[in-house]
Computed example of a mutant assay.
Amino acid sequence: MSTATQERFAAALTDRESPVPEGLTSWTAPRPERRFGVYRNNVRVGLTGALASRFPATERIVGADFFAAMAGEYVAADPPRSPLLLTYGDGFADFVAGFEPVAGLPYLPDVIRLEAARSRAYHATDAAPLVPERLAAIPPERLGDIRLQPHPSTAVLRSPHPVVTIWAMNAEGGTPHTVETWIGEDALVVRPAMLVEVHRLPPGGATFLSALAEGEPLGMAATLAMAETEQFDLTRNLAGLLTTGAFTAILPEDDHDA
């Protein structure tokens, strides 16, 4: 099969209205419409199933049938560009943000972003979290100057919607219910051990952790968080930093060795 034929074949797989690509034949027919239609349907079903596996809470929110239809539209608009499907759907949230049938669910793209972060965390490189004793050994006068190495799985998501609450009640084992107080929530996604964890961050926590993950020293990260909100509690956020396993080391290590 020539390169041009392969390209036409790939393009036709996700376009339900596309005819059998030119140059494609089978031993039973010069233009095997039925065979190609079956194969195209199998590809579509397989890709929508991959999306459903990656975004189960989203599927539960909109229902299996609607999700399959929405995922099918996404597959047609943004087919996979790699044979590895672990990250397929990274653009799903942006697609859904512009998908008119779910315009009444403005929080849905952020739920998808949270689920995407969870799947990336699941497949991230293993690393041992920073132990509290390591941070406790730093002299107080030097604490503000330290920088931290983020865990490979660490991700922070900010949302104007109660995204952690919505995701949790639609995740496996969750129970959907009315959200009494509709306020934005920021999430930390991390896999310090075997299981991926989602934490609802306190005020200023997203700015604090994001600044640290981007290489800012601890003092500057705290200053940025305090500038954002007077509710920022440094002690609480430091405790969370250690108990969640979001960081793995103090940088540079040789500056703090005994």
Score class of each variant (00 low, 15 high):
3 T>H: 14
3 T>R: 14
3 T>F: 14
4 A>N: 12
4 A>T: 14
5 T>W: 03
10 A>C: 07
11 A>H: 08
12 A>P: 06
12 A>W: 05
13 L>F: 09
16 R>Q: 10
18 S>D: 05
19 P>I: 06
19 P>N: 10
20 V>H: 05
20 V>L: 12
21 P>R: 11
21 P>L: 13
21 P>H: 13
21 P>C: 14
22 E>L: 13
23 G>Q: 06
29 A>N: 11
29 A>L: 12
29 A>G: 02
35 R>N: 04
37 G>K: 08
37 G>M: 07
38 V>C: 09
39 Y>H: 14
44 R>I: 02
45 V>S: 05
52 A>D: 02
52 A>F: 01
54 R>N: 02
54 R>I: 06
55 F>R: 04
59 E>F: 03
60 R>P: 08
61 I>H: 13
63 G>V: 11
64 A>F: 07
65 D>N: 10
66 F>T: 06
66 F>N: 08
66 F>D: 04
72 G>E: 00
74 Y>T: 00
74 Y>W: 05
75 V>R: 00
77 A>W: 02
77 A>N: 01
80 P>N: 04
83 P>K: 05
84 L>R: 10
84 L>A: 03
86 L>F: 02
87 T>S: 14
90 D>L: 03
92 F>W: 06
103 A>D: 15
110 D>M: 11
112 I>Q: 04
114 L>F: 06
114 L>S: 06
120 R>D: 12
121 A>P: 11
122 Y>W: 15
122 Y>Q: 07
123 H>P: 02
124 A>N: 11
125 T>I: 08
126 D>R: 08
127 A>T: 03
129 P>W: 00
129 P>I: 04
129 P>T: 02
